[in-house]
Design a protein around this nucleic acid. Structure first.
Lengths: 130, 130
DNA sequence: ATGGGGTCCGTACTATAGTACGGAGTCAAG
DNA sequence: CTTGACTCCGTACTATAGTACGGACCCCAT
């Protein structure tokens, strides 16, 4: 594990530019160059874990700004705030999931309607009412 | 129901600017002005239904572009495509929901960890591994 | 009939999350 | 010891979904 930026990015299925973008945002650290005064930066296991965490947290609905906060809380062992933060996001996540489940019900209903009716209206807009 | 744009926007809890934005995007129609050659546009029940649909579909994870397509399918009674579209989105929605459920499990675990440990690490990043 | 709030429309600006580009420098294999 | 792929860094550009602004016009109540 002493990866070039390209191989590092590949570890989490992101592009090199995305890694640099996260670095600029302060989500990833910029490792020192090995030979000072010019050279190439290398990435290790910790970096890979962090990058993968960013992607997972993102899929969990956190913004990059929030993820930055999470990383800081993690680094600082800040239990109080981490707990509050997790709980808040948990609530939001519950709301979001139930929103999506409602939408899923609407879509299922819609798909059924459209499948069995070959003529007449296929009420997309109406399917979402209620 | 013969609303001014402000009252119309209020019906779906959006701003006037947002209504105009949706009109520019082709998601909402721009009603005729009553007295031709200058005046004010009025919005009716159909417009309100449409606007509410847009917000609901958005919460369901559709982009405005997709919502535009849905509205067109609805208008055209296009069963085939509407069914395909609904089915595709249904699959995406299932994936999204299960992603969020995974995240929820991680967050629950994290919240528990942070709650019961008053010292030592509160492993935010670790909570998302697995 | 006039004043103030609402409307119209175009243009510009914002935030989020990247993606692309260009030139200079670096590294490793042949 | 060169060549070609990769790296570095800054700047610019993209898409999505709005939000704000400014001048002209409109309408209703006093």
């Amino acid at each position: 594990m002493n990866l070039t930026i390209k191989r590092f990015a590949d570890e989490a299925d992101v592009g090199v530019e995305t890694v640099r973008f996260y670095q600029r945002k302060g989500l990833l650290e910029v490792p020192e160059k090995e030979n000072p005064a010019g050279g190439i930066r290398r990435y290790g296991e910790g970096d890979v874990r962090r990058l993968r965490f960013i992607r997972k947290a993102q899929r969990a609905g956190f913004t990059l700004e929030e993820i930055k906060t999470l990383i800081e809380l993690d680094a600082n062992y800040d239990h109080e705030r981490a707990h509050a933060f997790a709980t808040a996001r948990l609530r939001a996540l519950d709301a979001q999931i139930s929103e999506l489940e409602k939408a899923r019900a609407s879509l299922r209903y819609l798909a059924e309607q459209c499948k069995h009716q070959t003529s007449g209206p296929c009420p997309i807009i109406a399917a979402f009412e209620a």
